[in-house]
């Protein structure tokens, strides 16, 4: 019965607003898989994208409870949406960078920086594909992997 859901929340950009959202999830035992936040350009609002899991009733409650938070302007429960996630990783320079680069390309990425002993790579793709990408990356012995969490936009 539990389903994955992507919810966007448009909130007033004000003191403590993020705590109101995360506090709600914590207090009511709702699950947050990923959470991204950034201001919406040229407005007083920010957009949060939350990936959560729950039964239909729980999802319904999450949405209603989010609506109740005073600085929440809008809650968008996505059905038709495009999702993207970004990942960055550090790969030791000893690895075969040409192969790494080819892999990155397949996932809308590339090598973005080469340092003293490692290269930093990035990719941006659907969350599921980012998972695959990380799997494939394992054979190049990544030293560190950082995922951004999901952003989504309605079709």
């Amino acid at each position: 019965m539990t389903q994955r859901r992507v919810i966007s929340v448009i909130v007033l950009n004000e003191h403590g607003v993020l705590t109101r959202i995360t506090g709600l999830f914590a207090a009511r035992g709702y699950n947050i898989e990923t959470l991204t936040v950034a201001p919406i350009p040229k407005s007083k609002y920010s957009r949060l994208t939350i990936v959560t899991k729950g039964s239909p009733r729980v999802i319904e409650q999450i949405i209603k409870q989010l609506h109740k938070i005073i600085p929440v302007y809008k809650v968008i429960e996505h059905s038709e949406l495009v999702e993207k996630e970004m990942v960055m990783a550090k790969i030791p320079l000893e690895e075969r960078l040409a192969d790494v680069e080819a892999l990155c390309r397949a996932y809308n990425g590339n090598i973005v920086n080469i340092g003293k002993d490692s290269a930093i790579i990035m990719a941006a793709d659907e969350p599921q594909r980012i998972g695959n990408f990380i799997e494939a990356l394992r054979r190049f012995n990544p030293k560190e992997i950082v995922r951004s969490g999901v952003v989504a936009i309605e079709r």
Partner: peptide, 16 residues
């Protein structure tokens, strides 16, 4: 205080 009152108020403010 606003951290404590958040879950037991309809809304709260820390005046800046």
């Amino acid at each position: 205080a606003v951290g404590i009152s958040r879950p037991c108020t309809k809304h709260n403010y820390l005046v800046q």
